[in-house]
C-alpha cells in the first residue's frame, strides 16, 4: 500500500482512512502537494474536507494510511505533534482569533513563544505583514473591532507569521458577507503567487478555477474525481460532481450560492 510519495512533494497523503466511531469519514485518500502548488478540496458539507484538513495538521489521529511532510512521516505515533504543527499554518472558517489579545499580539504570540523569535523582531515582522493587508493602523485594537474580512485576513497573517512551509485553509470565506469575500481571496491569491504550497477547502468555484493546480472532489469521504480545475469544474465526468456543482449554482436556500453570482 505504501507507494512512496513523490520525493519532491511538500505533502504526500497515502491511503488515508479516518473513522468517527463506526462511521467511515475518509476512505483511501491519496494526493500530493508539490512545491508552490495549491490543491483545492471541493465537496458538500459532510464530504470529509474539514476532517481531512484536521488530519493533515494532526488535530485528529488517522486510522490508516500515512501523511508525509517534506518526506518525513508525521503519522508515526512517536512524532512530536507540536513540532510538526509549527511547520503548518492553519486558517479556520470562524477565524478563531484570540479575543483577549490585540491584533499585533495575535500575530506575535506563536513566533515569540514557539519559534523563540526575539520580541522586537517578531513585532517588526508582524507590523510588516499587517501593513501588507492594510491593518497597520489597527495593531493595538482587539479583533472584535475589525470587520469579518479584516479578521480573516488577520487570521491568515497570524498563520503566516511563523513562516510555515504549508498552509491549510478550511472554507475561510464561508462565514463572510459576500462583499468581504474578495479581499480575503485576493490575499490568498497573492500567497499562491509567492509560492506558498496550500491545501484549501472552498465553495468559491471561480476562485478554485483560478488558483488550483489540482482539484479533488470529495463525496462520502472518498475522492470521486480529480484533475486540473477547468477539466473537473467545467467538464466533470462524474455524475455526483455534476450534481454537486449544479447545487452550488442554484441561488437561495437551502444551499447558499457561492462562486458564480446568483442570477437576479
Amino acid at each position: 500500500m505504501t507507494t512512496a510519495g513523490d520525493a519532491a512533494a511538500v505533502l504526500s497523503v497515502r491511503g488515508l482512512v479516518k473513522f468517527y466511531g463506526d462511521a467511515l469519514v475518509l476512505r483511501d485518500v491519496t494526493f500530493d502537494v508539490g512545491p508552490g502548488q495549491a490543491v483545492v478540496l471541493v465537496g458538500g458539507s459532510g464530504s470529509g474536507k474539514s476532517t481531512l484538513l484536521r488530519c493533515l495538521n494532526l488535530l485528529e489521529p488517522v486510522d490508516d494510511g500515512e501523511i508525509l511532510l517534506a518526506g518525513e512521516e508525521i503519522t508515526d505515533p512517536r512524532v512530536n505533534a507540536d513540532r510538526i504543527r509549527r511547520r503548518i499554518g492553519v486558517v479556520f472558517q470562524a477565524y478563531n482569533l484570540f479575543p483577549h489579545l490585540t491584533v499585533l499580539q495575535n500575530v506575535t504570540l506563536a513566533p515569540v513563544l514557539v519559534h523563540r523569535v526575539p520580541r522586537a523582531a517578531a513585532r517588526d515582522r508582524a507590523r510588516e505583514l499587517l501593513t501588507r493587508i492594510g491593518l497597520a493602523d489597527k495593531v493595538d485594537v482587539y479583533p472584535d473591532r475589525l470587520s469579518g474580512g479584516q479578521q480573516q485576513r488577520l487570521a491568515i497573517v497570524r498563520a503566516l507569521a511563523t513562516g510555515p512551509s504549508l498552509l491549510l485553509l478550511d472554507e475561510i470565506t464561508s462565514a463572510l458577507d459576500p462583499e468581504l469575500v474578495g479581499e480575503v481571496l485576493d490575499l490568498v491569491g497573492e500567497l499562491k503567487r509567492d509560492g506558498l504550497p496550500m491545501v484549501l477547502a472552498t465553495h468559491e468555484m471561480a476562485f478554485a478555477r483560478d488558483i488550483a493546480d489540482e482539484v479533488l472532489v470529495l463525496d462520502g469521504g472518498a475522492i470521486i474525481e480529480r484533475g486540473a480545475p477547468r477539466r473537473v469544474l467545467d467538464d466533470p465526468r462524474e455524475e455526483r460532481t455534476r450534481r454537486f456543482l449544479a447545487r452550488l449554482r442554484q441561488p437561495g436556500p437551502p444551499q447558499r450560492a457561492a462562486g458564480p453570482p446568483p442570477r437576479r
Binding site: N57, L59, D82, R83, R85, R86, I88, G89, V90, F92, A94, N96, L97, F98, L109, A110, L113, V114, H115, R158, A159, T162
Partner: peptide, 16 residues
C-alpha cells in the same frame, strides 16, 4: 474548543 485548536495549530504546547 476552537481557541485551543487555533493555539495548538500554531504549535503551542498544551501548557502554553
Amino acid at each position: 474548543p476552537s481557541q485551543v485548536a487555533a493555539a495548538r495549530s500554531l504549535g503551542l504546547t498544551h501548557a502554553q
